[in-house]
């Protein structure tokens, strides 16, 4: 009798719908409206690389120690330097970071003794070409610059 009642009044069906309805509460909504709304990125997020510069004198913090290049599992960092004859220090000339091969493991960041190389919270690194994925020193310091097309 009870079974018939449940079947006649679609009780099971309504119970299922109630579960679905309950889950429509706004606190259960996790969808990110990405282009319209920026997602919340964690502080430690390992995203686009950045080569930090000293804000006071606009000089790079990098001391050209090459440790990041040694630590990288994919060997995608190339550091170039000149020996400064006056100060006897290494001066950074080139810094190439191939983001197309990077797996964002963070080992380069850990290896850096002066916190010059950093993986930032920026995650928008798409480019139209493969060459655009290879970041040079200027891109690493200033962020990726958009390709300028002829009008």
């Amino acid at each position: 009798m009870k079974k018939l009642f449940r079947r006649f009044f679609l009780v099971d069906f309504l119970e299922g719908l109630w579960v679905t309805f309950r889950n429509q509460h706004p606190k259960y909504i996790y969808t990110e409206q990405y282009p319209a709304e920026r997602p919340q990125i964690a502080e430690r997020y390992r995203g686009a690389p950045r080569l930090n510069i000293n804000p006071e004198n606009n000089e790079t913090l990098c001391i050209s120690c090459n440790l990041c290049a040694i630590a990288c599992p994919e060997n995608l960092i190339v550091v170039g330097w000149d020996r400064n004859p006056v100060t006897k220090r290494k001066d950074l000339t080139t810094f190439i970071y191939d983001t197309s091969r990077c797996m964002f493991c963070g080992l380069c960041e850990d290896a850096c003794p002066v916190d010059a190389l950093e993986l930032t919270q920026d995650f928008e690194m798409a480019s139209y070409t493969r060459e655009g994925q290879i970041w040079d020193r200027r891109m690493l310091e200033e962020g990726p610059y958009p390709v300028k097309y002829k009008s």
Binding site: A42, E43, R44, Y45, R46, F104, G106, L119
Partner: peptide
């Protein structure tokens, strides 16, 4: 939690 802890 993973993202907050280790960044990925």
């Amino acid at each position: 939690i993973f993202e907050n802890y280790c960044g990925a």
